[in-house]
Amino acid sequence: MIIFQNVSKIYNNNSHKMTALEEASFNINPKEFVSLVGKSGAGKSTIIKLLIGEEKPSKGRVIFKSYDVNKIKQRELPQLRRHIGVIFQDFRLLPNKNTYENVAFALEVAGRPQSDIKEFVPQALEMVGLKNKIGNFPRELSGGEKQRVAIARAMINHPDLIIADEPTGNLDPINSWEIIRLLLKINELGTTVVLATHNKEFVNYINQRVISVENGRIIRDEEKGKYILE
């Protein structure tokens, strides 16, 4: 489903070249749960940005389903992104929309009818356990609640892929475990999940495929892997 073929990403900052990713190659198949591990700045975020088309590779090819990220046009990006649900460390909820509207927004941008929204949004919020916070705005929610809204938003479109970029980075341990369990549940229901993290405990608990990145290079890619860095 996802193919990275000798992908390099080089940023040019004032004639100063910075290699964020070097010759990365891997495939991810449907229904896989992949942990992407590495220290901050190792290249995890670059891989995610390439997947959602926020950046284009400097070398190599990135393919997601039928989309060739190298060649994708600006106006086709929304189509690609409707197949991917993204969860960020800083939640990225729309501050002026309440819980219900934040989740509904993902359906609205896809042009889904109002009847779908009325049916699916409460279901998704129920799944993440936020049915009682439907009218609250992000500023009225705790970190864990915000992240659960973000998860509801990410999965509402029934995406083929959920990407979670350090989703527990701003959360306390209890809420973090909650999020990890939710991601596992989503994966069990058949959605591919890519989790970028540097939390050893979670990776070892999940006990599935682990891709380790260091200094922009993929140094290890194991089925049923453990968190092994240094």
Binding site: Q74, P78, R92, L94, F105, V109
Partner: peptide, 11 residues
């Protein structure tokens, strides 16, 4: 954020 959620520019 809207862009990342898949909203088109006109939306």
């Amino acid at each position: 954020i809207m862009r990342l959620v898949g909203a088109s520019n006109s939306f």
